[in-house]
Design a protein around this nucleic acid. Structure first.
Lengths: 245, 245
DNA sequence: AACGATAATATGTACGTACATAATAACTCT
DNA sequence: AGAGTTATTATGTACGTACATATTATCGTT
């Protein structure tokens, strides 16, 4: 089986591109972009590509696996690899702790606890987190500010059963969000985004007017079957969430 | 031929799990979740973990690499691997072709071209896509419907230079969005989300009232240094975008 | 003490081999 | 022909070895 002639001692030479998985990745992507391989097309099998490009199958495998993750390829055993026919674009949303998001833009972060009470949850939270109506929970509302201006208004329910130590946390110093990130790991969660109108109260808190358009992020997190927290994050008018594709 | 003699899990736990990268992944995640390894902690090096878990370093490497991608670990050569101290949650947003999104929910999709003109772009599009004011472009607005009800209103500029064949596309049959996905691959793009109020016209088109809160998605895509298209997608009230974490 | 060169080291990658798995294709039996 | 079984095949994974690379740690030299 004919070695591909691996060229030379790979040392030293600033050889343009040795055949690494990244270059295979780029080459395949290039062929897709230039439409040599069109959506739906079956591309050569790993062994063939490896031979063509002069590298090991493992290397091709790595490259194609990444491309499949990124949504450019569809791969199935035995059936082979084809260019995704409906290129689902996969945007990666990094959702940082709000403090870091603000500080990352060079603004000054501040945080204020508005309200905190230990009480039983309302019905919609029960269904949301799958807890009983007599559960021991914290209800917390707080405001996050950037450069002194209201940035995000947070309303949150936290299950004490799921995170017993929260009773000891000083939530006037650290935001519930941030505390939870550090102390209450979760196994799954979901997040949704929508647009809503500001209520009278919300408007007052965010220093805007009633019926202003607000960006709303709703998050629920779980640890196994245990609902941990459910949060409603309302961003001040003008907020934009963005991401590269 | 030849039955491979499955070498059954010899020692270790009766756990049905063989040591594959997935199980290493889960085990590490478990240790993070149970706070055996806390945010900021340095975890054992790959060779040690491999020994502990009875597998090859490559297997551990694969598992840890995935965990780093998911944002749970920070890895640096020589410095080792530590639990991410500010767990950035990485939500994967799949942004499908709108038709598939609607059909995927079992609703009936319909599409109407409202307006299409070949003309030069306004200033904000020029800066947006880095094209000259005398560029040859298409300006297209259209409406996407789910079960006969307005779902999303699309306003889009497409550079003819970047996608010559669009002149031949029948945009009353296929949406510009979908046509572009199939015929104009891009190398990079960005996307942003915000909340806005419906203008008079927008309200009429989306069958809602003026000043209704609308979810706005703005997308720009590029092929290399070539701006391809810039779109403004306005979703009817009630729209929610969601994602798992 | 400051600085620069050098060694040490954990992760990153490449490769070849071997086997596992899923899905299809081919075949057999009724 | 239809149903069930077996063979085939492309991807998926595991492993050991070897080497690359980015940092950090160490050691001299000034």
């Amino acid at each position: 089986m004919s070695t591909n002639i691996q060229i030379t001692p790979p040392t030293t030479t600033a050889a343009a591109s040795q055949t690494n998985w990244q270059s295979v990745h780029d080459e395949v992507l290039h062929r897709i972009h230039t439409r040599q391989w069109k959506p739906g097309d079956l591309i050569p099998k790993e062994v063939e590509l490896a031979e063509q490009l002069g590298c090991a199958r493992a290397t091709v495998n790595r490259a194609l696996r990444e491309l499949a993750n990124e949504g450019f390829l569809d791969r199935r055993r035995k059936a082979g690899t084809r260019v995704a026919s409906h290129p689902v674009r996969r945007a990666k949303l990094d959702i940082p702790v709000i403090r870091l998001e603000i500080e990352g833009r060079g603004q000054k972060y501040a945080y204020g606890l508005l309200y905190s009470e230990r009480r039983t949850p309302p019905p919609e939270i029960c269904t949301n987190l799958a807890v009983t109506p007599d559960s021991d929970m914290f209800h917390i509302t707080s405001l996050h500010l950037a450069d002194g201006k209201p940035y995000m208004f947070e309303e949150r329910w936290v299950s004490v059963a799921a995170t017993p130590t929260i009773a000891e946390a000083d939530l006037s110093k650290i935001s519930a969000n941030e505390w939870l990130v550090l102390h209450a790991p979760y196994t799954k969660g979901d997040i949704s985004f929508s647009a809503v109108l500001a209520s009278e109260t919300e408007a007052k808190i965010l220093c805007t007017h009633k019926d202003a358009p607000l960006f709303l992020m709703e998050r629920t997190t779980w640890n196994g079957d245990h609902g941990i927290t459910s949060a409603r994050l309302l961003f001040a008018p003008g907020y934009r969430m963005h991401s590269a594709i």
